[in-house]
Design a protein around this nucleic acid. Structure first.
Lengths: 209, 209
DNA sequence: TAGATTGTTAATCGATTAACAATC
DNA sequence: TAGATTGTTAATCGATTAACAATC
């Protein structure tokens, strides 16, 4: 197995986006694509697309650019864990259900395998295609399902406590929607999606434009 | 009215976060805070906090750091539009409803004033505290309500068409949850929240850690 | 060949980090 | 004063942009 360089966060985001757009192109019967085509779709520059593709060790040709299907395979190779990544979701409110529905069957290599909530009304029922477990079952279910990554969609005041428990259960990456920064030990990766900040940012820059 | 420098996107995000954390502190009776206290809460450095606070023209003192309430006022001054910003939300699915609920009454200066959906089942009913209008009412309602900013929570295949219409209706900023980059004319600010990319990023870096 | 695109390096830009004198 | 923190500048770091020879 060849070694792959660990790349920047931004580059991973771009690769993820390329893959999605390339899949659309493939489904529409496109077999090759030029760097400037991809650049236009992502809203970036052709040079950056070329550099990204070069970094993952894929080659194109001046005459027809890049072959779509092999490029997708190359990105798969790069981004996906060989056996796939199993995800746990904590907090089955409106946002949690939206995410469950969205990811249901979307990517076989990245699937939500368990959900948790503290509301007894929701526990032990199947919601949006996923069984909802009680909070105290987290360690056992996460171990049994081998979930390495978690999505956090609980209220702010529970976020840190749930995080501590997730880390104790062996989770190594968290996508945090709770509006508060999380403290985690080294080696655990956290991505914060701060919807309030994002909206305030849009409001700020909208009136500057 | 004094002129304020236009600051970077990251700085606006940080200011937004500072404000939220400071409000919690104030509600808990804290009257002053040191740069390193704030830094610990946001997971950043004290020097950066000091630089940010300096940039918005607020001053602290070596003996007691920064006064919480005046600092919040200063950030308000900086981030909020004088008359507030009114927001329209397009797409009242699970995610749209989660956002409606979340922002309901949360910030008087940043409130969702109208919702739109193309599903006749949802139209002309009040959901999560907000009336849902049909899509073809967008130009009229946005003008009447003076919405300058929009949140986009429609499926990918409708995103660009809805965006074009929002821009035509005068919207100058869009928070996009649809998993596809938007094309907008210059002067319109778009913030993409790409949940799929974010989750793939977490999966990638979780196994590198 | 001529035209267009790729692979790759150097220059630019911006943000973060480190450092320290000024202040309470 | 002594200790701690602020205000502010210089150094570092990384990512993006620009440029161009190599390739088809």
């Amino acid at each position: 197995m060849r070694t792959k360089p660990i790349v920047s966060e931004k580059m991973v985001e771009r690769l993820s986006l390329y893959r999605r757009l390339l899949s659309d192109l493939r489904d529409n019967g496109r077999e090759h694509v030029f760097s400037h085509d991809l650049a236009a779709l992502v809203g970036g520059t052709a040079a950056q697309v070329r550099r990204d593709i070069m970094t993952i060790g894929f080659s194109g040709s001046p005459s027809k650019g890049y072959l779509v299907a092999p490029l997708i395979d190359s990105i798969d190779d790069y981004l996906d864990a060989p056996g796939g990544t199993r995800v746990a979701l904590v907090g089955v409110g409106n946002l949690g259900r939206a995410l469950l529905t969205f990811f249901l069957g979307r990517r076989p290599k990245l699937s939500i395998v368990a959900a948790f909530d503290r509301d007894p009304e929701r526990v032990n029922r199947v919601t949006c295609g996923c069984r909802c477990h009680p909070m105290n079952a987290m360690p056992a279910v996460i171990a049994e399902r081998d979930a390495r990554v978690a999505i956090l969609t609980v209220p702010a005041d529970q976020a840190q406590a749930v995080t501590d428990e997730l880390v104790r259960a062996g989770v190594e990456g968290i996508l945090n929607f709770a509006p508060v920064p999380l403290r985690v030990p080294p080696g655990v990766f956290v991505e914060e999606i701060d919807i309030t900040s994002s909206l305030e940012k849009v409001a700020y820059f909208a009136r500057q434009g």
